[in-house]
């Protein structure tokens, strides 16, 4: 079986994991939660194998390159880092409720990669500009950052769902979500990891650009949007230092931040497209 076939099957397995998490949240039972975690672990292992397989396939085709080089591969890798980071958080916090908020993102990323007509899963050779170790570190750090921001987004949504008065929450869905104080702390930890990784991503990206084109910063839309994202999360980090700025305001900034991440990732291509269609 080819790596891309495995990936397209896994899309459904991740959806199954989402369903288990959802059932756990609604019913308030343990069993679906356990099933969800094992489903997630299993599909994570399979996805890891698929990524390694894809690497080997590129060698078999005589290209021998790391599988992080186009939109398809980046989506797969993004999903992979998101699962990894989520599993670590689940294991550390002993709380599964975030799964219901994070698995849809994983499912969507894989579904988009596998089934969008605009995305090719073919292994293509690298053009000269992309042959750089800086580029590999760039992709890895950026996507770890994006995954952390995605988790932060999940925690932000949970924060908004949870509401203020947890004593009145009789629905198991809301009972299983940790208290707002804990969500706030988890969210901040994710923002810190994401911010660090995004900073590394911007740094490695500009070192790469410098060796490829001779300029470490040229204000192209993708670069600029990553800077915008960086500025928004810098604002989030500083918000905690302003007295009385816990909670809602920070949560809203986090959601804006994740919107910027998505735009940096997908929207920028549309910008360039918009640009060329507008003239015709």
């Amino acid at each position: 079986m080819t790596s891309s076939a495995i990936i397209s099957y896994l899309t459904f397995v991740y959806f199954l994991a989402f369903v288990f998490y959802l059932v756990m949240m609604v019913m308030g039972r343990r069993l679906p939660g356990t099933l969800a975690t094992y489903t997630l672990l299993g599909s994570f292992a399979a996805q890891t194998a698929a990524i390694i397989l894809r690497w080997q396939e590129s060698y078999a085709l005589g290209m021998g390159r790391a599988p992080f080089s186009n939109l398809y591969e980046s989506l797969i890798f993004f999903a992979w880092t998101l699962v990894l980071l989520y599993l670590i958080v689940e294991w550390r916090t002993k709380n599964k409720s975030a799964g219901a908020f994070v698995t849809p993102l994983i499912f969507l990323a894989l579904a988009y990669a596998s089934f969008s007509p605009n995305i090719s899963s073919k292994i293509m050779p690298l053009i000269p500009a992309l042959k750089s170790n800086w580029l590999i570190t760039h992709v890895i750090t950026c996507f770890l950052g994006y995954a952390a921001f995605a988790l932060s987004f999940g925690f932000s949504l949970m924060y908004l769902f949870k509401g203020n008065d947890s004593a009145n929450n009789t629905a198991s869905f809301l009972r299983l979500i940790p208290a707002r104080g804990i969500l706030d702390e988890l969210n901040y930890q994710m923002v810190v990891i994401g911010f660090l990784m995004l900073t590394l991503g911007i740094i490695t990206g500009s070192v790469w650009a410098h060796s490829a084109w001779g300029s470490y910063w040229s204000w192209d839309p993708k670069e600029t949007w990553s800077l915008i994202t960086w500025l928004v999360y810098a604002a989030v980090i500083h918000s905690r230092l302003v007295r009385g700025w816990k909670g809602r305001k920070i949560i809203i900034l986090c959601i804006v931040g994740f919107a910027c991440v998505l735009f940096t990732y997908f929207g920028v291509n549309y910008l360039a497209g918009l640009h060329s269609y507008a003239t015709s």
Binding site: P221, T224, W225, I228, L231, V232, A235, C260, V268
Partner: peptide
Amino acid sequence: LVLLAIFSVAGT
């Protein structure tokens, strides 16, 4: 920081 972000958006 937010102003700088907003104006950078305008530039794109």
